[in-house]
Design a protein around this nucleic acid. Structure first.
Lengths: 184, 184
DNA sequence: GCGCTAAAGCAAAGAGTTTGCGTTAGACTG
DNA sequence: CAGTCTAACGCAAACTCTTTGCTTTAGCGC
């Protein structure tokens, strides 16, 4: 992979980015969101605040950048042997992840950031997992909805309820969304 | 309605709140979000910044407060004579409202605010409109889903796609969500 | 009217942000 | 493999925003 003309991707730049991201993650686990600040992160990372401002612009954008990284899919979703159970397991895990206190903060940071790139990337990560599940169903010969349908009928309601509804959504409710999308 | 003990609801307090809200709305129509600041709003409203800080805490919370006011339902939704067309008209209008550039900003401000009160209130406003439509359907004797189902299957996908998806959702797509929820 | 106090004003101290300029690391070239 | 070039970093000063203690004011309840 050749580096893009006019931007530096390796060496010191990469080390600074790594150090700043690590600093944010450390501080997020130690202090509340309101206590975070660019100077604080910069000090922990061993760089000057101006470096952070010039690269990320605002604390908001930096937090969104870190949040996006955290959402990146690591392992392929568990293979339970059937579409229904695969999707239910994923839906339960996803609900748990984003309804947790840190999970909500990450999504908040993503939505609050100026560029929509971050939120969109986050959804793409989500769809990568969903598609992996659907592809396995296809291999088994199971009938299955497409990824956009699963997004509209499972992912969207989960995210919406976590952020706009008063009660805590239950794992059972998340599973019922899967039942409904597989019913028709 | 008696005022709550220990807080002032009328007189000067009310005038200040009005002036600050007006100032925010004016400035939002003149400048970009990044150019807004508490001192700027305060100056336009004819109050001191410390007044704004003490009442709202941060610019974020103030913007969320204004955004919530804007989302408050004004008129009852149009009565087109049938559930399907009522819901489709509402879905189209809602999509248009929140996918517009200012609409997205309002929702962003709501989600970004610390207290979840604002986001939840916003959803309650939404459900008020949906329930009005469903109640009319009930009066006509039409079969109809409940408000939570409409929230999960129409409102949630609309909001989710506007914020997490790359392409612009179309009015036709919003209508198809209504078709699906009425189909089963 | 009169007193009481929540809320506003004022101003100074503190914290965060922006910016110009010099320096440095590391990518590219010959 | 040394030399050149420049994106990105460090530093520091100027600037803006935020916080806070104290004073003043408006207007509700008696």
């Amino acid at each position: 992979m050749s580096p893009i003309q006019g931007t530096r991707t390796g060496g010191r730049s990469a080390r600074v980015q790594q150090a700043v991201h690590d600093a944010v993650r450390e501080l997020q686990s130690e202090r509340s969101r309101a206590e975070l600040s660019v100077p604080l992160v910069a000090q922990r990372a061993g760089v000057t605040p101006s470096t952070v401002y010039r690269r990320w612009g605002t604390l908001q954008e930096l937090l969104a950048d870190v949040a996006r990284e955290r959402m990146r899919p690591d392992d392929p979703p568990d293979d339970t042997g059937a579409l229904e159970t695969d999707l239910k397991a994923w839906a339960r895990q996803y609900l748990e992840e984003i309804s947790s206190s840190p999970g909500r903060e990450y999504v908040r940071d993503l939505v609050a950031s100026d560029g929509e790139e971050n939120s969109e990337q986050c959804n793409r990560y989500c769809q990568v997992k969903i598609r992996a599940i659907l592809d396995r169903a296809a291999e088994r010969g199971e009938p299955h909805p497409d990824a956009d349908t699963v997004t509209d009928r499972v992912t969207a309601p989960i995210v919406f309820r976590v952020f706009f509804s008063s009660g805590d959504p239950t794992p059972e409710w998340a599973e019922s969304l899967v039942d409904q999308v597989l019913a028709d």
